[in-house]
Design a protein around this nucleic acid. Structure first.
Lengths: 335, 335
DNA sequence: AATGAAATTGTAATCGTTTACATTTTGTAT
DNA sequence: ATACAAAATGTAAACGATTACAATTTCATT
């Protein structure tokens, strides 16, 4: 059952049938109704393989994302899905677990014309590669960017976010502030490290490299980090985690170690913890988790809208959109 | 740059170029190398729109899923992604939030030939519709099934799982056992309810409808459920939550109400909580959460493999695969 | 009724592949 | 050298839509 069949059944040409399907104005009301009747009776639906080839469009976008097991990403992804569904686009998803080979493999969906554009949650490729890709395909980086590249992106000011967080901890009297971060897969991490260091130096605190721990962006990673930092002879009194998932692992570990005891006044054995992202769990955990909020929904929607712009006008100049973050103080950073 | 260009550049016909690309054996080593050289030099990649139309295949599958904000689903989805990537398939994702219209809309990706098959995390359509779909397209239901339909599916024995859970609570001396479930969007819920009731009646306990609370499958839902159940004049001493996410909401609320106090011997103000799914958070929460484990990775992989079978042999008889579950006792159900 | 512009419909090329079938080339046995 | 089978390559028709362009119909104007 294809458009030809509909044409013969109606006694019209494939052209007019196509025009009916695509809502062209030049078709008379009677023929439109005649065609629609037959379409309904036969249950015909156009074959998009033919259409896609002809118009060289797929109405699909690719989202390359490290994982969806982190609520930070899944929330943004749901926002992208919502926006794209409203615009008639479908999402092809590429989960990479930060495997560069996979990332490249998914990018081939662009060269082979299987998607019209892509949203990338990654920043590990050279600026030259990113710029070249952006010249060839509509792409936008989400939550990340690649320094020195010419690629449209949307993110928060990660440096400022970290600066705000660490400054707050300092204002609370902390001077020994640990940091637990990922393995620099992302530009955002480098920026947060910049913010962390800036806050320290602005307050005349010398950075102690022993206080920086590198691990995976997981609860397990947080556990390892907390254990390592607490094993130091002069352990930090506050820990800045580069992600809430890490923060949860940290707090869980500290609780098991009895290092976190809520409502102590002396503060001696307390460790303040501050996370990043503001995932839903932050308010459900005990203690509730202080964090730097990222506007997840807006990040997703903006990424999609930027991509639409790029797809409609490939020669559009690339933009960098920075959305506001917000320091949210809950229990985990307080004594 | 298309296959014709490569043909002229090599002085061969498009047919042999195509044969090289598709690794046909009938092409001589010299010509193969000649073609590959030109392909490499020009950076040519085949346009899948042409190929897909010709062979009437997309190498894409659709996954229709209620949400990815629940770690239960995201873990299964990651398993599906891994399996499909290994087999050269890509995933189109349809997040529905249980919106039936959206579910239908995503199903159109099958009729319009935009995907080769689909994995469905839903069970709300009539058995007639499901059976008809299954006749027309390769589909498999994952975690769910539709009673009376003829559709390939994979899930655990939800009734038995619930039975095990509730029986355990009874064995611990509970007789007033609350249940918090979703809005019967899923067959799995009905089965769990069956198991819950069976366990009660097998132990001579009469079911009190006041102990059943219906809400959303979220932490917020758990909160509402816990509040409602605890407000009863004769509140339950144990709560069976149909999902760990609900369980987390319940426990959080009970903690806030001081209804859960770990290590009490008298048990008076304690409420036992038992969840379902075994998401990673179960071990991180305080108290750690007792639950019925579903083999998430296996569910995903099996769903994909079943779909592959169906796609390779559309006339294959439909199968129902049941994977083992496991009752995991942690702290939340103990005094 | 004849005219011509506007509205509607039709014809056929096109998108980029794959693949039956036809043709040519190669290689072996005589 | 010849004949013939096997191997390699080429020709051209699909796949199912969209869309210039051409042809036809409609309809107001004279």
């Amino acid at each position: 059952m294809n458009i030809k069949d509909i044409a013969s059944l109606t006694g019209l040409s494939v052209a007019t049938v196509s025009r009916v399907i695509n809502n062209h104005s030049s078709v008379t009301k009677e023929t439109r109704e005649k065609v629609e009747k037959v379409i309904k009776e036969t249950g015909y639906t156009p074959n998009f393989l033919g259409r896609n080839l002809r118009v060289s469009k797929t109405h699909k976008i690719l989202v390359i994302i490290p994982t969806i097991g982190n609520l930070f990403y899944s929330e943004i992804l749901e926002a992208i899905q919502e926006a794209s569904t409203n615009s008639g686009f479908n999402i092809l998803i590429g989960i990479t677990n930060n495997d560069t080979e996979l990332e490249k493999k998914y990018m081939e969906l662009l060269t082979t014309k299987q998607v019209d554009g892509a949203i990338l949650f990654l920043s590990r490729f050279d600026k030259e590669i990113m710029t070249a890709w952006s010249k060839k395909f509509p792409i936008v980086q989400c939550c990340e960017y690649t320094r020195g590249s010419d690629v449209t992106n949307v993110s928060i000011d990660n440096k400022q976010g970290a600066y705000d967080a660490v400054s707050y901890l300092i204002s609370k009297g902390h001077t020994k502030i640990g940091a637990i971060r990922g393995q620099l897969y992302f530009a955002s991490e480098a920026d947060r490290t910049d913010g962390y260091m800036q806050a320290l130096s602005d307050n005349g605190i010398e950075r102690d490299l022993k206080y920086s721990y590198v691990t995976e962006y997981t609860m397990e990673g947080g556990k390892k980090g907390a254990e390592a930092l607490m094993r130091l002879e002069n352990p930090p009194t506050a820990i800045f985690a580069y992600g809430d998932t890490i923060a949860i692992g940290v707090i869980k570990t500290l609780k098991d170690m009895k290092k976190i005891v809520m409502n102590r006044k002396d503060g001696k054995r307390n460790v303040a913890v501050l996370g990043f992202d503001d995932i839903p769990l932050c308010t459900l955990f005990t203690p509730t988790i202080s964090t730097v909020e990222q506007p997840k929904y807006q990040l997703g929607v903006t990424a999609f809208n930027l991509l639409m712009e790029k797809m409609n006008d490939p020669d559009m100049e690339n933009k960098s959109v920075v959305l506001p973050h917000r320091l949210i103080i809950r229990q985990s950073s307080e004594f």
